[in-house]
Design a protein around this nucleic acid. Structure first.
Lengths: 201, 201
DNA sequence: CCTACCGATCGGTAGG
DNA sequence: CCTACCGATCGGTAGG
C-alpha cells in the first residue's frame, strides 16, 4: 500500500482547508489553547501531516492572521471607496466589522504580542495597519477635511487615535443577543459621532 | 532538620503574596501561559508549596479575580458617591480605571469564559457586575434622570449597554505612550459624551 | 514547606 | 500522508 501522495492542486486545497480550520479555532480559543492535533483532527488529517504544509505551528498561525487581515482590508476598502458620507461610511464599516470579526480580536492581539517573534510582529502590525488603521483613519481624514469632524488637534489627538478608539468600541460584542445587526451598527455609529450627552457643546 | 512550618499569620502573608504575584502574571500573560512553577518562583516557593494554600491552579485564579474586582468596586463606588456631576464623575472613573486596570481586561474575560467552570463563571460575573457594571450604570442612570443624558430608549439601548460600550472603549490602551493620564481620560470622556462629529443634532 | 515523582499532553521528527 | 516515537513541560500527589 503506497502512502497517499497528493497532486499540487490537492496540496493547495488541503493548505486552504488547514488555514480556515485553524482560523476558527485560533481566533476563538487562542494560540496556546489549540493544539496541532486539534487542528489536524478538524481537517481529517494526522498531526504530523500538518508539517508537510507548514514548517511549524507558529508559521501556520502567521498565515491565518495574514489571510484574515487581507480579507478584511479588501472588504473595508471597497466599502469606503463607494460611500463618501461620514455617517453612512461608518455605519457600513461597523456592520461589516461586526459580521466578519473573529469572536475576540483582542485574543489575536495578545497571541501576536506574546507568542510570535519580533519579526512576525512587525510584519503583522504592517498588515493590521493596512487592513484597519489606514482605511478607518481615511474616513475620519475625509470628514476632517470637509469640516464635519472635530479637529483632532483640539482634543490633542489624531485621526489615527480616533480610529483606535472606534475599533476598541467594536472589539467587545454587546451582551444582549436580542439586538439586530442593524441596531447594533446604528448604536455604535450614533455614539462615536454624537456621544451620549444631551447638551451638545 | 525539621521542615519549615509557618504560623497562621505567616500563612496569611504567604497567601496574599501568592495572590498578588499571580495577579500580575495571569493578567498580563493569561491563565494558560502562566505555569504554577512560574508563580511559585516569583514568590520564592517551590511549586508543590502552592498547593498548601490553594487546592489547585483554577481556584488560585478565581481568588485573584475576586480580589481584583473587589478592589475595583471599592474604588469606583467611592468616586461615584463623591462626584455627582456626569462629566466630572466619568472623567475620574476613567482615570481610575486606566490606572488600575490590568494590562488586558479582555484577557481576563477570555480566561474566565474558557478555563473556568460554569459555577465559577456565574460567581465571577456577579462580582464583575458589582465592580463595574452597576457603578458605571449608576452614573448614567443619574444623568438620565437629570435629563443630561440621551434617553436610552431612543437609541434602543439601556444604561447597561451604555456602560458596556464605555468599558469597551477603555479596554484597549491607546498606543501613543506620549499622552498623559489626564489627556487620555479627557479624550475618552469627551468622545463618550459628545462624540467626534461637529454638527450636533 | 521541601524532595521526588507521576501521568498527560504538548510541538516536532524519523522513516517510509 | 501515515505510524511510531522523542524530549520538554504541564498540573498535581506522596510522604515526610
Amino acid at each position: 500500500m503506497a502512502p497517499k501522495q497528493n497532486t499540487a492542486a490537492e496540496m493547495g486545497d488541503t493548505r486552504r482547508n488547514i488555514i480556515k480550520a485553524a482560523e476558527g479555532l485560533f481566533m476563538e480559543y487562542g494560540y496556546r489553547a489549540i493544539s496541532t492535533r486539534k487542528i489536524a483532527d478538524t481537517c481529517g488529517l494526522t498531526q504530523p501531516a500538518l508539517y508537510h504544509h507548514f514548517p511549524n505551528k507558529k508559521s501556520l498561525y502567521v498565515e491565518v492572521v495574514r489571510n484574515y487581515l487581507y480579507e478584511m482590508q479588501t472588504g473595508l476598502e471597497r466599502i469606503i471607496k463607494r460611500h463618501p458620507d461620514l455617517e453612512d461610511s461608518l455605519y457600513r464599516v461597523t456592520r461589516y466589522i461586526i459580521l466578519h470579526q473573529p469572536k475576540k480580536l483582542s485574543q489575536m492581539f495578545h497571541d501576536i504580542e506574546y507568542e510570535m517573534t519580533v519579526e512576525d510582529q512587525m510584519m503583522i502590525s504592517q498588515c493590521w495597519s493596512e487592513a484597519y488603521q489606514i482605511p478607518i483613519s481615511s474616513i475620519f481624514e475625509r470628514a476632517a477635511a470637509e469640516g464635519t469632524l472635530k479637529d483632532p488637534d483640539s482634543l490633542k489627538a489624531t485621526t489615527s487615535i480616533y480610529s483606535h478608539i472606534f475599533m476598541s468600541m467594536l472589539s467587545h460584542p454587546l451582551p444582549g443577543d436580542s439586538k439586530t445587526l442593524d441596531q447594533r451598527a446604528r448604536l455604535y455609529t450614533e455614539v462615536i459621532l454624537r456621544g451620549l450627552s444631551v447638551e451638545n457643546m
